[in-house]
């Protein structure tokens, strides 16, 4: 195992993780629509079919329910499938297999089986793909006991968390923001894992905690730079895992900063921010709050096709800066 650090894009990091998993364990197989010869809708699997052959890198028919069913069945019977959805929106087609089968089988069969399937979901808006190809449905699956749901925000975590997911005995859902695929960052070579269920503090600060997910982590960090110039010291927590959620890290941060802003792309109402807010209100951090908790989430609308409206429908840096400033200055 090497620890030399070079830069890879987020999609390269995922591809490398899958290659390492395929090499290390013959039970690992890739499944999904157009992941073989075409290389995947976002070219994440790339040329893996040439390296590992069509028996381990399998194109599935254009039926998410069927493909997911094959993956879940294969996981129950001894393989470790990594199933790619072309768009996370199509999770809606496979809900029976994900929610009713994968999440519950271990429990309903008294622990006699486990379902070590990994499902990858290209998610989020910003690509002009309109309402049916731009959603952030992680909170849907985060609501289901029996699933683990993660949102790596960096190339480093994308690789390490995918390898942790492959090693996990239970179904792990990975939501990959489509705008992150091209983002570059340091990625160690070789095999390593990043634990599921552990948040990361991306920036330490004293005035305000921003808990952000996926691409919003980067927007929050950018906002934090602007705010730092105004003398506002922001702590940015990258949630990374929404089920299980690392409440300890968030609570400790809020106890330190006394203020909380949640930033996530999924629809604001009944979303991740609601869960974090309630968790804080129920915790020992409650009476450390010196301002109301604020959530910035997706608008209460299907993602619009018009690029300007599409941008306006999810949190952007200026909105994060304004909300954070108001919170710290006691305007709200």
């Amino acid at each position: 195992m090497s620890t030399e650090v070079r830069e890879l894009s987020y999609s390269q990091a995922i591809q490398e993780a899958m290659a390492i998993a395929l090499e290390a364990d013959e039970r690992v197989v890739l499944m999904g629509e157009d992941i073989g010869v075409y290389g995947g809708a976002f070219q994440v699997t790339g040329d893996l079919i040439e390296r590992f052959g069509p028996e381990r890198v399998m194109d599935t028919p254009i039926s998410e329910l069927g493909g997911a069913g094959v993956a879940v069945g294969a996981a129950v019977t001894g393989l470790r499938p990594i199933f790619e959805f072309q768009f996370s929106d199509f999770a809606t087609l496979a809900m029976e297999q994900i929610v009713n089968q994968a999440a519950k089988m271990r429990y309903m069969l008294g622990g006699a089986v486990s379902v070590p399937v990994v499902m990858r979901f290209p998610a989020g808006s910003g690509t002009g793909a309109a309402a049916q190809h731009s959603q952030s449905l992680e909170a849907w699956l985060g609501h289901v006991p029996g699933l683990k749901v993660i949102q790596p925000a960096t190339p480093h975590d994308a690789k390490g968390m995918l390898l942790a997911a492959v090693a996990d005995p239970d179904p792990v859902m990975i939501f990959e923001h489509k705008l992150l695929y091209k983002m570059k960052g340091p990625v160690p070579e070789g095999h390593y894992t990043v634990p599921i269920g552990k948040a990361a503090i991306r920036r330490s600060g004293t005035d305000l905690t921003i808990v952000a997910t996926s691409i919003m982590v980067h927007k929050a960090l950018e906002a934090a730079e602007t705010l730092a110039a105004e003398g506002i010291d922001v702590e940015v927590v990258d949630l990374r895992s929404i089920r299980p959620m690392d409440s300890a890290t968030i609570i400790a941060s809020v106890i330190k900063t006394h203020r909380l802003l949640c930033v996530y792309e999924g629809v604001k109402t009944l979303g991740i921010g609601a869960e974090i807010s309630a968790m804080i209100a129920e915790s020992e951090a409650f009476d450390r709050l010196d301002a109301p908790i604020v959530r910035l989430g997706g608008a209460e609308t299907p993602i619009p096709y018009n690029p300007e409206l599409e941008k306006a429908a999810v949190p952007q840096v200026p909105g994060i800066v304004a909300a954070a400033r108001d919170l710290v200055r006691g305007v709200r």
Binding site: F286, D287, R288, L289, D290, A291
Partner: peptide, 11 residues
């Protein structure tokens, strides 16, 4: 009463 205060201020 009619006091408006944050949880931290109360604490």
């Amino acid at each position: 009463g009619d006091v408006r205060a944050t949880p931290l201020a109360r604490r």
